Simulated assay, not measured.
Amino acid sequence: MLAAVLHGQTDLRLETVPDPAPETGEVVIQVDVATTCGTDLKVWRRGGHAKMLKPPTLFGHEAAGQIVAIGSGVQGWSLGDRVVANNSAPCGHCFFCQRQEYSLCTDLTFNNGTFAQYLRIPAAIVEQNLLPIPEHLSMATASLTEPLACVLHGIARSGFKPEQKDGPAQRVVVIGDGAIGLMFVGVLAHRGAEVILFGGSDQRLKLGQELGATHIFNHHHTDLAATTLGLTENYGADVVIEATGVPSVWETAIACGRPGATINLFGGCPRDTSITVNTDLLHYSELTLKGVFHNTPTFVRESLALLASQELPFEQLLNDTQPLNHLGQVFADMRDRKTIKAVILPHT
């Protein structure tokens, strides 16, 4: 089969590799749709990922398709079933899994290789995170299950409280107008938040407004902290979501929060980078700084259910469609901010 193999920084090659075959407990899917994401872009630019992969390796982690081979011991699935598989599954037995902190599992099973014609799904993922796609839902939209699951996990860990009858709407700052930032905007606005979105693209900011952002600002032309204070009676936001993965922006995010705020440092920065925190501000303003990573099986299911409800038009994030052999150009376009997310068709 044809597959994308990452060999190092921006070194992505299409190669002919053996077709995968399922072992006990596994299935193989035909990848009908794979989607790109900001994590893929960072991995492509950096040449690896501290948690998920080391080159040379098959590449990509968002996909939807249909089962074409089933290993021994697999029950409840049939050839031809339309499915979406999360790119990981927790072990269920370690210190953290015993405490239901599944994203911290010390033995997460990761699965990469969606930018290929076929994908083997490990047994742990088949057991916990392989889900049927509802008939009315397109493959492309279903492929958004993994990133949206990460967003739902991030919101749950941010101390966000949905709008209540007798209380004001929570004010949330989202920094970053990539696909993840825009998903945060959509879900938070849908749940009643007043969302202030900062980004670098006027076109993407407009999309953020369509998804429910109350205020949009181009960070090239505004002071994020000062603007936030001006919109919040000089207090700051209740919750701040950092979705860029830039260390200096982590520091800016902290400055946008009110006393008692939760700052969700969601965007993964380059390995071994650091930030500076004002200890007086942290202590006397009782800030909560949260690092949030990945997702859990619960949020994977919630994500697919939300996509199936079609209450939020996240398919608008998919603004390019290309065959697999154009993947290198797709990442160049993402780097240049021409593409938010691309639909890759491995069999075209």
Rank of each mutant, 00 (worst) to 15 (best):
3 A>H: 02
9 Q>K: 15
12 L>H: 02
12 L>C: 03
15 E>A: 09
26 E>M: 07
27 V>I: 15
28 V>Y: 01
29 I>S: 06
31 V>Q: 05
33 V>I: 15
39 T>P: 02
42 K>T: 06
46 R>K: 11
46 R>L: 09
48 G>R: 08
53 L>H: 01
65 G>D: 10
67 I>M: 10
69 A>E: 14
69 A>N: 05
71 G>K: 10
71 G>P: 05
72 S>G: 14
74 V>H: 12
75 Q>R: 09
77 W>K: 10
80 G>I: 08
85 A>I: 06
85 A>Q: 09
86 N>K: 00
87 N>M: 05
90 P>V: 12
91 C>F: 08
91 C>A: 10
94 C>P: 04
97 C>Y: 08
98 Q>E: 10
100 Q>Y: 11
102 Y>C: 03
102 Y>D: 14
108 L>R: 05
110 F>K: 13
116 A>I: 08
118 Y>A: 07
120 R>L: 12
121 I>L: 08
128 Q>E: 10
128 Q>S: 13
129 N>H: 03
131 L>I: 04
133 I>D: 06
134 P>T: 07
138 S>D: 14
139 M>E: 03
141 T>D: 15
145 T>L: 12
145 T>R: 04
147 P>K: 10
150 C>E: 04
156 A>L: 06
157 R>K: 15
157 R>N: 15
160 F>M: 07
165 K>I: 13
165 K>F: 13
166 D>K: 04
169 A>L: 05
169 A>G: 03
169 A>D: 01
170 Q>N: 05
174 V>A: 09
177 D>N: 09
179 A>I: 03
184 F>G: 06
184 F>V: 04
184 F>H: 15
190 H>N: 14
190 H>Q: 15
192 G>M: 07
193 A>Y: 08
197 L>W: 01
198 F>D: 03
199 G>Q: 02
203 Q>H: 12
204 R>V: 01
207 L>R: 13
208 G>K: 03
208 G>E: 08
210 E>M: 09
212 G>V: 10
213 A>L: 04
218 N>D: 15
218 N>E: 06
218 N>A: 11
220 H>Q: 13
224 L>W: 01
224 L>S: 04
228 T>L: 09
242 E>N: 06
242 E>P: 06
244 T>Q: 04
245 G>W: 05
249 V>T: 14
257 G>M: 14
262 T>D: 04
262 T>E: 04
266 F>V: 02
270 P>N: 12
274 S>Q: 14
274 S>F: 07
280 D>K: 08
281 L>M: 15
282 L>N: 05
283 H>F: 10
284 Y>Q: 11
286 E>Y: 09
286 E>S: 13
287 L>G: 05
287 L>Q: 04
288 T>Y: 05
303 S>D: 07
305 A>T: 12
307 L>T: 06
311 E>V: 01
320 D>G: 02
323 P>F: 13
323 P>H: 11
325 N>F: 10
325 N>S: 11
326 H>K: 12
331 F>N: 00
333 D>M: 00
336 D>N: 13
336 D>L: 00
340 I>M: 02
341 K>C: 02
341 K>D: 00
341 K>N: 03
342 A>P: 02
